[in-house]
């Protein structure tokens, strides 16, 4: 589903990703962990071209992101993204937030789109909020709407960029619950997260990134209980 080979990313003279390679299979749930500034968010943002790729190849759902003739929109239709700050559109009601992309990008039928949006809202447990504006929702509710909005495009892959870091502790659970259900349904997910509990419980694989490189990867149990690298151990000691 996702194949990354020797990915480099520089901002000016600063090299943030220093040659990362990994393969992610369909229906796999991968958690990226690592200290802040390690490049895990940048890695995620390269996967849907929010950041341009400096060198290396990324192939995602059959699209080669390095291809200069590639239309970014075709990639983004296949890749949903959930942001730390939700980034809901504040001038649109919840339902319109979800329907905007299918209507304008997917050019779908309005009635069917609305039906789908309502189903997605039900799925994230917010059926009663269809006509609310984002500002009337709690952080956790906004993030669940953001997940529904990304799902409305029927993506093949979902990227989560620290989806619970900006939330009040009591609303984190609802969001993780939605993500867990999504994982169970077989969605391919790449999650940058500090939620070690979620990584341990839901992820098929955990990748530890430090200073722009993949230090170590493995099954969550191996990674958390028996990390091989000293840097991984040091990081896990600090976060747990």
């Amino acid at each position: 589903m996702i194949s990354v080979t020797d990915l480099h990313k520089s901002f000016g003279k600063v090299e943030v990703l220093k040659g990362m390679s990994c393969e992610i299979a369909a229906s796999e749930v991968v958690c990226l962990i690592g200290p802040s500034g390690s490049g895990k968010s940048t890695f995620l943002r390269c996967l849907n071209l929010l950041e341009s790729i400096t060198a290396g190849t990324v192939i995602i759902n059959g699209h080669n992101l390095g291809d200069p003739k590639l239309d970014k929109i075709t990639v983004r239709k296949d890749v949903g993204m959930v942001f730390q700050q939700f980034n809901l559109f504040p001038h649109l009601k919840v339902l319109d937030n979800i329907m905007l992309a299918p209507l304008k990008v997917g050019k779908k039928d309005r009635l069917a789109t609305e039906q789908k949006a309502l189903e997605l809202l039900e799925k994230v447990g917010l059926s009663d909020k269809a006509d609310a504006y984002p500002s009337a929702l709690s952080g956790g509710q906004q993030q669940r709407v953001a997940i529904a909005r990304a799902l409305a495009m029927d993506p093949a892959v979902m990227l989560f960029d620290e989806p619970t870091s900006a939330l009040d502790p009591e609303t984190v659970g609802d969001v993780l619950e939605v993500m867990k259900r999504l994982a169970e349904e077989g969605m391919t997910m790449v999650v940058v997260s500090h939620e070690m509990g979620f990584a341990r419980e839901v992820a098929d694989r955990v990748i530890f990134i430090d200073e722009g490189l993949i230090v170590e990867e493995g099954k969550p149990t191996e990674m958390f209980d028996n990390p091989r690298h000293e840097r991984t151990r040091a990081f896990l000691r600090r976060v747990s």
């Binding site: 929010l50 970014k72 983004r76 942001f83 980034n87 559109f89 992309a101 990304a150 495009m153």
Partner: peptide, 14 residues
């Protein structure tokens, strides 16, 4: 805010 552009782009809006 920058995030609004990114959210729109990530959804595939041209």
């Amino acid at each position: 805010p920058r995030g609004q552009y990114e959210a729109a782009e990530a959804l595939g809006l041209g």
